[in-house]
């Protein structure tokens, strides 16, 4: 909405400050409703009693809110007559930390290797041309479901089952091709004159990459990092098959454990979902500053 208005009448919103601000406000509200409406239902479910969830129309504001699920997930133990066990609770508590380690390590590693290879594919002409990157890409397009058995055989033979490092390395190798491709696209948008000038000035190849290219690529690196972090945080199949214990199990696998064979406690699943999304959301609020850093760096160089 606001896009069209801006592009068609770019002048109109300049003198009058109210108009664009109102449009912006409407757009922000639309966005918040789009994102938050389902989450609101998740939050409501997480503080509802099982009786509240059986009402139609629903009890939108269960009062007083029932925080027993949160207490149970964080500090409590499993009660009687439920499909929940202490085993699951403990797995959940450890899994948040495991997932943070996995996602952060995968992101860092993929970013280092990905920016190196992405730069090479963007800026250096090889005799074999750019076809190599498509070889890498197609390897990522293969659904992981059919790779599990050979991977399991390989990892099992190497004696590396049930290790965080195994999950990290596997996720890096699965997501790296796309990171390379993304970063290559980003590096290609940078003007070639920059590095040529630096090379003439006597900078080494490595210096060109670390001192000239990477500093102006922060937005690109940030989006690649966000992509990798999200993919590894949400990864399910690889952690499911390659982790078995509390010290390795990812949050996705742990939360699936709340689904019972016949019966599932929706409120508990909702509370677990809320808790599981807190750490990455806090990280995002913190790290979004780096987007601004990217802007400043870009502005200085530009």
């Amino acid at each position: 909405m606001s896009v069209q208005t801006q592009t068609q009448h770019p002048r109109r919103f300049l003198p009058k400050r109210i108009g664009p601000n109102l449009l912006l406000l409407i757009a922000i509200l639309f966005m918040l409703v789009f994102i938050l409406a389902p989450i609101a239902w998740l939050l409501i479910s997480s503080v509802s009693t099982s009786k509240d969830l059986l009402q139609m129309p629903p009890n939108w504001l269960p009062w007083p809110p029932d925080f027993s699920r949160y207490r149970q997930l964080l500090f409590g133990s499993a009660g009687q007559n439920t499909t929940l066990t202490d085993f699951t609770l403990q797995a959940f508590r450890y899994s948040l930390r495991n997932s943070l380690i996995i996602a952060a390590s995968v992101t860092l590693t993929a970013l280092v290797f990905g920016s190196m290879a992405g730069y090479a594919f963007a800026r250096i002409k090889f005799p074999f041309g750019n076809k190599l990157i498509y070889v890498l890409l197609i390897s990522q397009m293969i659904p992981v479901a059919v790779l599990l058995i050979p991977l399991y055989i390989t990892i099992g033979n190497l004696g590396q089952l049930d290790k965080l490092s195994t999950v990290i390395v596997l996720l890096v190798s699965i997501h790296l091709p796309f990171v390379i491709w993304m970063l290559r696209g980003y590096f290609q948008t940078l003007p070639a004159e920059m590095e040529e000038a630096a090379l003439v000035d006597g900078a080494t190849n490595f210096q060109v990459l670390t001192k000239v290219i990477l500093p102006v690529s922060l937005p690109g690196l940030f989006s690649a990092a966000a992509y990798t972090f999200m993919q590894s945080w949400n990864a399910f199949m690889i952690p499911l098959i390659f982790t078995s214990s509390d010290t390795t199990r990812s949050v996705t696998v742990a939360i699936a454990m709340f689904v019972g064979r016949h019966y599932t406690d929706y409120s508990l699943m909702s509370a677990a979902g809320v808790l599981a999304s807190l750490p990455p959301v806090l990280l995002a609020i913190f790290f979004q500053r780096y987007l601004l850093a990217g802007l400043t760096a870009g502005a200085v160089k530009g």
Binding site: I39, L42, M56, M230, Y266, S277, A284
Partner: peptide
């Protein structure tokens, strides 16, 4: 900053919870 943080929430809710959430939203009875 806060709104940017909110934007990423759908991303980081595990797939199994998202599935459950939508099935509870679309549920024909409740």
């Amino acid at each position: 900053g806060l709104v940017r943080g909110i934007l990423i929430i759908p991303w980081v809710i595990p797939g199994s919870v998202q599935g459950l959430l939508w099935s509870r939203i679309f549920d024909p009875h409740y």
